[in-house]
Computed example of a mutant assay.
Amino acid sequence: MNIKSKIVGLTLLSMISFGVVGCSNQSSNSSSQGQEATTDEAFIKDFEKSINKRWDDQNKLETKYAKDTSYSDEKYTKDTIKVLEDEIAALQKNKKGIKDKSLIKIADDYIKGVKIQIELNKTQDTDLMIKYEEESDKLRKPALIAMVDDYGVKVKDAHQQNYKDFKEQATVINKSNGAQTFADKLGREMTLEKSTGEFGDIEFTTIVENTSKLDFKSLSYKVQYKDKEGVVIADDIIYLENFAPGAKQKVKLTPYEEGAENLVITTDWFETK
């Protein structure tokens, strides 16, 4: 073989080697991406099956409870918890492999909401039951709506009314969650300047603005005055009324106790229009 033939041979060998490596990497990347997609899709399918099965099972339990007089409250509660535990087990099967960050949060919220429902069924304390129900709804219902709207989960015709109820409640919950988030943020960022008033009184003042799209009928904050040692010496309240989007309101506080150096502000309550 002459030198020219050797060069051509080496060039072809390099091209073939590069092509093999390139194909190998491409195949590896495609396989990895395919695996990610497959895992996410597997969870979505698990979710669709589990939510429909959960509602099927709940309907059966409720029918049995209504018709079978020998079916005790204790047995009904135990069976309800089993339905919820089965739903969690089905969802956790492929949850660890999820790559979509939004889907991970939705999965976490939904499963956490179901776990709270289990605690709700275990307690006899009415106040705790109300608390657990509110906490569960805030997590589970918006998560379910997101799974249907954003990830194409299909709800059986038999459960469409359940889903419609969920969607109406989730809209209210999302609005409430958004209002809570904005109210808390406004309170954290509220900076009141300390000054001396016309009659020598200490005043704390600021201008607050509603930069959200939420129309607040009223919004209030608890205020604690602390001295230079960090000891709470008095309490107060900030009240904002008709706080519409884009509205600005002046806040002025006058502590009755002397020695107030700084304030701690926390959301008290709010009502949106």
Rank of each mutant, 00 (worst) to 15 (best):
T171V: 15
K115S: 14
M147H: 02
V153T: 02
L186Y: 04
T123P: 06
L128S: 14
Y132T: 02
V148P: 05
L192R: 08
H159V: 06
V155K: 03
Y132A: 06
V148I: 02
G152M: 05
D165H: 07
L186R: 00
I173E: 00
D150H: 09
K154F: 00
V172F: 14
K112E: 12
Q117K: 15
F182S: 02
N177M: 07
Q180D: 07
Q117N: 15
A158I: 11
K115L: 15
T126N: 15
A158G: 11
N162A: 09
L128E: 10
A143T: 01
K138F: 01
K131N: 06
D137S: 14
G152T: 02
K138D: 00
V114P: 03
A143I: 02
M147E: 05
I130V: 14
P142Q: 05
A143Y: 05
L139S: 03
I116P: 00
N121P: 12
N177Q: 07
K141W: 05
D127H: 08
K156W: 03
G187T: 09
L120R: 10
K138H: 07
E134S: 15
K164I: 07
Q169Y: 10
D157R: 11
A183G: 05
Y163V: 07
E119V: 13
A143Q: 04
H159E: 06
E193F: 11
V148D: 01
I118L: 09
D125R: 08
D184I: 04
D165M: 08
G178P: 02
N174W: 10
K112C: 08
D127F: 08
M190G: 01
E119F: 13
A183Q: 02
I173K: 01
D137I: 04
L144D: 02
Q117D: 14
K185W: 03
E133R: 14
K138V: 02
A170V: 01
Q117T: 12
K167M: 10
I118A: 06
K175G: 06
Q169N: 11
A146I: 06
N162T: 10
I116V: 14
Q161A: 14
K164F: 04
G178R: 04
S136H: 04
G113Y: 03
D150R: 10
E168V: 08
D184L: 02
Y163L: 13
D125H: 09
I111A: 11
L120K: 11
F166V: 11
M129Q: 12
E168F: 04
I173C: 03
M129V: 07
L192A: 09
K112W: 03
I118F: 09
E189D: 10
G152C: 04
V148K: 01
E133V: 15
